[in-house]
Computed example of a mutant assay.
Amino acid sequence: MESFFVDPKNIRNGLAKIEGEEYHHLAHSLRKRVGERILLFDGSGKVYMATITKITKEYAECEIINENFMLGEIEAEIAVAQAILKNTDRFEFAIEKLTEIGIKRIIPIITSRVISPKSKIDRWQKIILSACKQSNRAIIPEIDEPIKFDELLEISSKFEIKIIFHESESTEFKRGFLFDHLKKIKNANSIILAVGPEGGFTEDEISKAVRFGFEVVSLGQRRLRSETASIVGAGVIAQFIFANLKRKEIEDCRR
């Protein structure tokens, strides 16, 4: 079932009004008709099942059948600090897939190996909104303006669990596998994952991150592209937290 974004101010008295690009997508691209059921989300956590009752030349009106809150969302805040990539298509692919996975915040970062990055925040937000609709998200993830690596280290104090992915064999710092960190993640309320650009983080950046409380983690024997590491790492953690939550719900029902 297709999902559409609706501005919260356009939901009143059990009716929702869809305007702008979302209306054009509904009426012209997908050619929806009166009587069809769709999903609506307002970006803040509310998800609605609705029936289309009216389609005009400027907007569509829907009757809300039922309402859910944070449907399919995990409680923990997972943020991914993704280095901006030279290949913009790969960076945007990472943003899209991280949104589908369930990440709540994406922080583009500028590292030593990032060259002349440009902020495309408007385009990135459109990619995120499209991915939200495709994956039936209840909220729209935040995406920050790009920040420097040292700024990331400063704001990382807000997170309980801090992980930086790195494949170097340096003996300067201990490196564990993601599987070994899952028990620590189990009850965490906030997690930040840092992923480097093409070529990875420098040894100096890793050393700085360790001093700020980041744990250095490997994703295995394969040398992964940056966007692959980002998606795999975030995906494993999101699924682990979701599965753990469902396990608790089942156990509570049995008591």
Score class of each variant (00 low, 15 high):
225 R>E: 04
143 I>H: 02
233 G>V: 07
194 A>Y: 01
31 R>T: 09
226 S>L: 08
38 I>E: 04
248 K>A: 14
130 S>N: 11
117 P>G: 12
94 A>H: 04
134 Q>W: 08
200 G>V: 03
198 E>Q: 13
41 F>D: 08
230 S>K: 07
222 R>C: 04
203 E>I: 03
138 A>P: 04
93 F>L: 15
128 I>Q: 01
61 E>A: 02
58 E>S: 13
224 L>H: 05
216 V>W: 02
2 E>K: 15
74 I>N: 04
78 I>H: 02
116 S>Y: 09
91 F>A: 06
203 E>C: 00
217 V>H: 10
55 I>W: 06
12 R>L: 12
26 L>P: 10
125 Q>V: 00
32 K>V: 09
181 H>E: 14
162 K>A: 06
242 F>T: 00
158 K>W: 00
165 F>T: 10
94 A>N: 03
167 E>A: 14
206 I>M: 08
205 E>G: 08
60 A>E: 02
92 E>K: 07
230 S>Q: 04
117 P>V: 10
217 V>Q: 11
163 I>A: 05
196 G>Q: 02
44 S>L: 13
238 A>Y: 09
242 F>A: 15
6 V>F: 02
145 E>T: 07
97 K>P: 05
85 L>M: 13
149 F>Q: 03
85 L>R: 04
215 E>M: 11
65 I>C: 00
246 K>A: 07
88 T>H: 13
75 E>G: 14
123 R>I: 02
87 N>E: 13
112 S>T: 10
136 N>M: 13
231 I>W: 06
25 H>Y: 12
25 H>A: 05
146 P>D: 11
5 F>C: 09
104 K>C: 04
74 I>R: 06
20 G>R: 14
70 M>N: 15
154 E>P: 01
109 I>W: 01
201 F>V: 00
199 G>Y: 10
68 N>D: 14
167 E>D: 14
92 E>I: 11
103 I>R: 03
116 S>A: 14
83 A>T: 02
34 V>D: 01
96 E>G: 00
224 L>W: 06
115 I>N: 04
144 D>M: 10
224 L>G: 05
122 D>A: 13
13 N>V: 02
235 G>V: 09
114 V>Q: 00
